[in-house]
Structure formats: structure tokens, C-alpha cells
């Protein structure tokens, strides 16, 4: 079976500096894969290559067996590759619900006819399914009570959940998380860990770049360490049993 997300021989150079050096990586379904390493080890660059904000100097990225190396980030997102940001990426001008809705309604691409139809005010197809996905994501992350509030007015912990809800509303097959515990307190980080385990149990493929080794230890099935742009392999191979239905 092909892994939902696979990287083959990814190398990326900035000028003369090789940030990522021939990395092979598979992110299997139903598991949480973690990527750890010191600052400058190349984690973020690899992450960017995977989600499409950076095009690797060489190497290929496969999404469910399909070569997506040349696709930009938004196209990969529509194919089911979702990501979160180390620095919060929410839309402060929108309400919590609208933030999530943006994620829910992009699976159907915004093509030229769609833009024209939107311009003259025709209803867009797929509205009801987007609404349902939005509601489900809000419920999953316990945002039901605050869905009408503007994102600009909310604290970091809530916004982390808003971002995650938006990402989940697009029902991705692969989820890349860039330090999702940054700025969270103990309780929030634990709640996040439970959600991640639940998603993996649901069959999603998760890749976690994280400094918080606590969180990594609790949720990751496989831990890869990166140093000097290379993958050191599943060090310690913390294969865990079952993972657990925690929710």
C-alpha cells in the first residue's frame, strides 16, 4: 500500500547551504509520525517542501502515490494535504465559524466559472456539505460556544483550536503540524494530544514537527530525528501499541 504522503530524496539548498540533504520519509495512515531535532536541523525546510511553500532543489513528493512535487501549496491542500503553522495562521477579520468554513469549502476548487458565478451572486455548489463539515469541526474542537466571535478577539489557545478546526474541516488525509503546542498551557497541550490520537485512530496520517518532547512522547507512534539536513532514521523507534482510543 502506498503511504498517504511520501518524500523521496528531498534535497534543498539555499545558496551554498544544504538545508535538507536527500531525505526519504513516509507518513503512514493511522499513525502519528514525529520529526524532532535541533534548530537548524532542517525540519522546517523539509516541512515546507512537503506542503509546497518551498520547491525542493531535487527529489519528489508523493501524495497518495501521485507526484505533487510541482503543485503549489493551495493545490496540494485541495488534494487533502493540510498543514498548521508554527505562528498562528487565522483570519482575524472573520468569525470563528467563518474561519473554519474557509477550510471546509475549498475542496471544490475555485475555478474561473466559480469566480464568475460568485461575482454575480449565484449560490455556490456544495454549500450544505461545507456547512456540515464546519459544524463537525467546531464540535470536535469544542468551539461551538464561540463560533460567532471574531477571531481577532480570542486568546492564543483558542486560536490554535480554530486553526486546527479549519484544517480538519477540509477533511484531509494527511495533516502536517508545525509545533502545534507552541503557546499552549499544560491542559491545552494535553487536550491537543488527545485530538491528535483520535485523528490517527480515525485513519489520518499525521506528521508532527515539535520541540515539546512531552507531547511527542505521548502521541507519536514513530519518531524521526533530523540533524544536519539528514534523517537519522526512526531512532529509538518508539513503536507504540494501538495508540489508544483516548476520547
Amino acid at each position: 500500500m502506498t503511504a498517504p504522503l511520501a518524500a523521496r530524496g528531498i534535497t534543498h539548498r539555499y545558496g551554498g547551504f544544504t538545508a535538507v540533504d536527500g531525505v526519504d520519509l513516509s507518513v503512514p495512515a493511522g499513525r502519528v509520525t514525529a520529526l524532532v531535532g535541533h534548530n537548524g536541523a532542517g525540519k522546517s525546510t523539509l516541512f515546507d517542501c512537503l506542503c509546497g511553500t518551498v520547491r525542493p532543489t531535487s527529489g519528489r513528493v508523493f501524495l497518495a502515490g501521485r507526484d505533487v512535487t510541482r503543485l503549489p501549496d493551495h493545490a496540494r491542500a485541495r488534494l487533502g494535504l493540510a498543514r498548521t503553522f508554527q505562528q498562528l495562521a487565522v483570519f482575524p477579520g472573520l468569525t470563528v465559524e467563518e474561519n473554519v468554513r474557509v477550510g471546509a469549502e475549498q475542496r471544490r476548487g475555485l475555478t474561473a466559472p466559480g469566480l464568475a458565478a460568485g461575482l454575480i451572486g449565484l449560490p455556490q455548489p456544495g454549500r450544505s456539505s461545507a456547512r456540515a463539515a464546519t459544524r463537525a469541526a467546531l464540535r470536535l474542537l469544542d468551539l461551538g460556544a464561540s463560533h460567532r466571535l471574531r477571531a481577532a478577539d480570542l486568546p492564543t489557545g483558542t486560536l490554535r483550536r480554530v486553526e486546527l478546526a479549519r484544517v480538519l474541516a477540509s477533511s484531509p488525509t494527511v495533516l502536517l503540524l508545525d509545533e502545534p503546542a507552541a503557546g499552549l498551557d499544560q491542559d491545552e497541550a494535553e487536550a491537543l494530544g488527545r485530538v491528535l490520537r483520535a485523528l490517527a485512530a480515525d485513519g489520518m496520517a499525521l506528521l508532527l514537527v515539535e520541540h515539546d518532547l512531552d507531547l511527542v512522547q505521548r502521541v507519536a507512534d514513530t519518531v524521526h530525528e533530523m540533524a544536519g539536513g539528514r534523517l537519522l532514521g526512526p531512532g529509538g523507534a518508539e513503536e507504540r501499541e494501538g495508540g489508544g482510543e483516548v476520547r
Binding site: 493551495h74 485541495r78 475555485l110 484544517v167 477540509s170
Partner: peptide, 12 residues
């Protein structure tokens, strides 16, 4: 509001 975030959500 957030160009990269929008792209990550699939907005072209």
C-alpha cells in the same frame, strides 16, 4: 488576513 494560511486552506 493571512496569505499563507489561505493558501494552506486551499484558497487559490
Amino acid at each position: 488576513d493571512h496569505e499563507q494560511g489561505a493558501a494552506a486552506a486551499g484558497v487559490p
